[in-house]
Design a protein around this nucleic acid. Structure first.
Lengths: 210, 210
DNA sequence: TTGACGCACGTACACCGTACGTGCGACTCT
DNA sequence: AGAGTCGCACGTACGGTGTACGTGCGTCAA
């Protein structure tokens, strides 16, 4: 009998831990149970099924986003901060990110960032319709960026795979790709992300002027 | 004995068909073999494993993107056309889209769009480094948008019943979300996509002026 | 004391990917 | 024509998966 009783948070935590250690493919109910030193079916007393467990993983990760919103700051700074905070899940939970992104959840955990973002945009002067549209653009950009960041590290990770592929590209068929190969291969995710983020912020700032 | 012999393209086509009919979760080697009226292991004479099969699915779908590039057109129009062409995979193969974006492949199938895009950006006057960065931003945005359209992104994607979730939101805790609920629930993907696309194009046009 | 209930657990089933061996038809070489 | 090789469809089998179901033990309520 374990001193700490089984519980949904404990199971979710074990799942997150397992995903970060060995990748999302390694997740199985048997494996999680083994990590907890517990029978497989005991998990089902606290979690209805594996899908719900992964929802719990996404929810938990999302809820740990830390927004340090400063209502007095310029709205561009607030948007920037919120976007960067969202992206930080890729640093804290790199391998869980794929799970979060590829899973639709209807809990309120994912709603808090949405609420904050909409409030920021509306306080900046955007109308409701515009705020929603702009939020969608930002989310699309952030999610797409995260996907690239975790995509470089598939699950277990020889990162130097693409170099080989780029080396083998025919310079006659793909002059741009082969010419720009060094820039395509190495990618500072942080600065790349911020580049696009600034592009978007600047664009909606222009939009706001009208 | 089938009149048409088994082959990799036929297997990939069956996989695409199955994914579109019943979703990516329904894909199994046994199921595909059954659809082809063939033994399970016969597939392995043409495809090394399931992962490679899914790579083939992504590759095939990607290769069917139709670019009608007009070198005489304004670069903004060319960028727009390429982005919209890319997005059309979400219309032709809605359920395969998730497979495509969640799988990074190093074949040359995915390289052709990259080559064209880089050529367009450089002809517009961007340097190599800038072109790569801008392309990354566009890809992130497109992929993120496709994920929402397919209906797997943490925000509202009205695939089935998100209305219920939005109805149950506490207006006091989430005033923006509940106030803007109608706009969050219904989403014209086409116009939403183009909104963000124009935002980005405009932003990089400004960037180009310097 | 007795009953109910929560919860850990073992067993069992259907399904999965795929390693391996087998057999059959077609083709090549002598 | 005979012999050898090879491509390819196929069956069997193994270790893995999610989870439905039944069982037994602990604690708490009446």
């Amino acid at each position: 009998m374990p001193a700490e009783p089984l519980s949904r948070p404990r199971i979710v935590a074990a799942a997150i831990d397992l995903i970060e250690r060995e990748g999302a493919d390694a997740v199985s109910m048997r494996r999680i149970a083994a990590d907890l030193g517990v029978g497989v079916m005991s998990l089902y007393n606290h979690v209805p099924n594996k899908s719900a467990l992964l929802d719990g993983v996404a929810e938990t990760v999302l809820s740990q986003i830390e927004f340090s919103d400063d209502p007095d700051a310029d709205w561009t700074d607030r948007v920037r901060m919120q976007a960067l905070a969202f992206r930080q899940i890729a640093h804290h939970y790199p391998r869980c990110t794929m799970v979060v992104v590829s899973r639709q959840l209807q809990s309120t955990a994912g709603l808090l960032p949405v609420e904050r973002a909409l409030a920021t945009l509306r306080s900046a002067g955007f109308g409701g319709h515009e705020a929603v549209r702009i939020l969608r653009v930002f989310i699309a950009y952030i999610v797409g960026s995260l996907l690239r960041e975790v995509g470089v590290t598939p699950t277990f990770a020889p990162v130097h795979r693409p170099d080989i592929a780029v080396e083998n590209v025919d310079p006659l068929l793909f002059p741009q790709v082969s010419g720009l190969a060094p820039m395509l291969v190495d990618c500072d995710h942080e600065s790349e992300f911020e580049f696009g983020l600034e592009l978007l912020i600047q664009a909606i700032a222009v939009q706001l002027k009208r």
